[in-house]
Nucleic acid binder design. Sequence first.
DNA 1: TGTCACTATGCAACTAGTTGCACTGCACCC
DNA 2: GGGTGCAGTGCAACTAGTTGCATAGTGACA
Lengths: 181, 181
Amino acid sequence: MALEHAILVSLDERSGSGYELAQRFEKSIGFFWAATHQQIYRTLKRMVELGWVSRHEVAQDGRPDKKVYEVADAGRAELARWLASPSEPETLRHDLSVKIRGASLGDAAALTGEIARHRDLHAERLDVYLAIEKKDFPDPSALSGRRLHQYLVLRGGVRAERALVEWCDEVLAAMREDDRR
Amino acid sequence: MALEHAILVSLDERSGSGYELAQRFEKSIGFFWAATHQQIYRTLKRMVELGWVSRHEVAQDGRPDKKVYEVADAGRAELARWLASPSEPETLRHDLSVKIRGASLGDAAALTGEIARHRDLHAERLDVYLAIEKKDFPDPSALSGRRLHQYLVLRGGVRAERALVEWCDEVLAAMREDDRR
DNA sequence: TGTCACTATGCAACTAGTTGCACTGCACCC
DNA sequence: GGGTGCAGTGCAACTAGTTGCATAGTGACA
């Protein structure tokens, strides 16, 4: 239900086309809300029908024309309504944990390899986040408003990825130790 | 796709009825894989058709009869296959982060209240996990095999919830500070 | 002139999860 | 005998997300 709202937040930061939104969902806002371009186009269509966003065609030269979306008053109202409403924490579904819990029923070596792969993947993401933090937010104490909020969300990513890396390391160490015995 | 596999792991630990499984998905295995009883019954039906589990009726006295499910050979094979196959990290969708990023577009006080609520919720979960850790795994270094794997998954929960609590605290502090200015 | 790569938009079919409801069995208590 | 509450099983409709495909415009380069 929140894809609409994520799009509203992103469009409010800066109006853009479906294509541009899809790109943002590959990074920045995509770090905490996943969406494919198919989903985005479909949702934008619905949002126009609801009157949450307005659309106008923009001719470009050197590249195909595009349709730019902008948040409408009804969209801003909906966003305010949603922001004030309570939301439940995401229901968790963590593949890797299921696999670890079932580890004794399969190939242990393959699984530790898989855990190591996840570890590296999370470490990579962590590096990306830390690089953004360093580059875009060198002086956090000076931040306020919108910029502060962006920074705080990024901090959530940093903390989450760091926790995951550390957990993978703990799991790997314990499973290898168990293996040796 | 992994609900089948989570059920296989759980049934392998101990055979049980749909109802019993649904209860396990309220705790233990449910801490990292969410599922409702409707989903579980539907999936069990499919798994019987696939030959992954077998089912037999068990008469009870003092309570209604039940249908107990047990992992079949084909189920064990499927589990081994799945354990050896790579899996992508879950796509993230974090409501609260979207809300924080859009904070300037709504009622700031309501949002900080919401963040505080989430903070408490995560703190509560953390306490639950820590209590289980203390009670069921008093001596982690002595663990091995299945028990070790259960412990390691629990550790993931502890780390995740702790990271969330700390992040909420960071967000609350920063937003309140920003408010005062 | 062809093809590659990127910009740009979209439909359709499928899969997985959510929500609301419905029903039976049985113990316990008033 | 009637209500409450837990045990136990399930269907149906809906919503959200995934996957595979289709198509067009434009610049760069061989």
